[in-house]
């Protein structure tokens, strides 16, 4: 499945790019992120607690930054295993471009998500909506953090 959205941000592209590479910003933006530590320049270890309705599972995994093209964008991908619940992974191709007025930045993203194991077997009806919702939350959190 693929999900696309975009945001207009009243900030210069360099600021947005910096934030996208700052683990503090990322940690506050990833929904349910409890731990995010950089283990190499482009690799972070993560612990995320995901609640969907009555389900509540802690995923442990990694966040990778790839296709880096400063300050125009990158691909941020995460994958984690949630024990008995299965595994989830997702990636967002993030593109930044200057707005026509030259002041602001357009952030657009394209998300792909996959789930495995019990969550796929029992929750298929919710996979797409949940992925969309989490992506939205991540970027809206990110935008809010930037506005602070």
């Amino acid at each position: 499945m693929e999900i696309k959205e975009s945001y207009d941000l009243p900030l210069p592209i360099e600021t947005v790019w910096q934030a996208l590479n700052d683990e503090g910003f990322l940690k506050n933006s990833i929904p349910g992120c409890e731990k995010l530590e950089r283990i190499s320049p482009n690799e972070l270890s993560a612990e995320v607690k995901l609640k969907i309705g009555p389900m509540s599972t802690r995923f442990k995994g990694k966040v990778n930054l790839s296709d880096l093209n400063p300050p125009n964008g990158y691909t941020i991908s995460g994958s984690g295993t949630g024990g008995i619940a299965g595994a989830a992974s997702g990636s967002a191709k993030v593109s930044l471009s200057k707005m026509e007025d030259g002041e602001g930045t357009i952030l657009s993203y394209q998300v792909k998500a996959e789930v495995k194991g019990k969550i796929a077997q029992l929750g298929s009806r919710l996979i797409h909506s949940t992925a969309k919702k989490l992506a939205k939350k991540f970027f809206s959190n990110f935008v809010q953090e930037l506005a602070k």
């Binding site: 389900m55 509540s56 008995i84 019990k118």
Partner: peptide, 23 residues
């Protein structure tokens, strides 16, 4: 710590049986 209200349990109990939550 992570308590859950149990009403009729029609969603919660099956979720617990699947070990998808651990209140």
């Amino acid at each position: 710590k992570e308590g859950k209200i149990l009403a009729g349990g029609m969603t919660l109990i099956p979720t617990l049986k699947q070990r998808l939550a651990n209140p």
